[in-house]
Amino acid sequence: MLPLAQSAPDAAPYPYDPSYGPEVQFGLLDLLFGLGCSCGWWIVYLPLMIWMAVSCIRRDPERYLWIWIIVFVPLGPVIYLLARWLPSSDLKPPKFLHRWTRSREINRLQIAANQIGNAHQYVELGDALRETGQTEEAAAAYAKALARDNKNLQALWGGACVDFNQQKLEAAREKLATILASDPAYKFGDVSLLQGKVLHALGQTEQARDHLEKHTRRWRHPEGVYLLATIYADNGEPRLARDQLNGLIQDLEGGPRAIVRKHQFWKGRARKLLRRLPSA
């Protein structure tokens, strides 16, 4: 009687060929890592999409087009962030980055100031230093410019900005007063607005109120209108505060789209303050 032949084990349907390289084994850790990467992507992407969608609905005059792009187009939130949100925001690159990218320019301006030594060269140097966050060095440059020409409006303006940032409010007030006495419309109202902010920060509420009332009749800076409204509200005059806030909102709603997008922050703050005011 012939012995029964032992059946060979089933061969693998796709045998491994060593010439392809080492065999890769996938385990539980690999699966968990892949899921983690996928979840990590959605943890970032989903909040970004919600943020951009809410911002679009609230602020963008072309919201009905862009909301579809945000929700349905692949990478739509990223596209909206780069194309619409960032250009309309007040975000600026970090000042240390400016300092690094403009180091050669600042070095050139320093050499020109040392060699020529006129007020103009020190003002240019001070402006570059202030824009890159080097406030102490900027203050020194403006001081040298004023030592050569104590009526130089550019040096007075730059020095006042540095003083305000450093909370040297009285020094800033004096410089701004000198500018306004010479040219009330200098910097298209920016000097006047900063003077109102300085007076308010100094606690000189009545002077700040009188100044901002005159300022807002000539220049409708949203920040100036809002600051005047807060003074009215703090003084227990909600009707006057409400008039200013409603006027601010109307100014922005009727302005050019670029201006509206740029100042949406003040529109939101105005509406928030309106809700807190007591009813008339």
Rank of each mutant, 00 (worst) to 15 (best):
R220A: 11
P184K: 09
P94G: 10
R173G: 03
N235S: 15
A8P: 04
K144H: 05
G21S: 05
P94W: 09
V73P: 07
L199E: 00
L125N: 01
Q121P: 00
M1V: 09
T230I: 09
F96R: 15
D17F: 12
A208V: 00
W219T: 08
R275Y: 09
K187D: 03
A171N: 12
Q110V: 03
I111Y: 10
Y142L: 03
G196P: 03
Q166K: 10
S192C: 05
Q167P: 02
V225N: 12
T216E: 01
L252R: 07
A233V: 12
D243E: 12
Y80D: 06
A145M: 09
D10G: 08
L65W: 11
A141Y: 00
L277W: 02
A11Q: 13
A5P: 08
Y226M: 04
A208Q: 02
R130S: 02
K95L: 08
E237N: 15
T178K: 12
V191Q: 02
P278E: 09
M1S: 08
A128E: 05
V191M: 12
E170Y: 10
T101V: 11
R257M: 14
A12S: 11
D183P: 03
E253V: 10
Q134P: 00
A160N: 05
A11H: 05
G255Y: 07
Q6C: 04
S19N: 11
M49N: 10
R239W: 09
G254K: 11
G76W: 13
H263W: 14
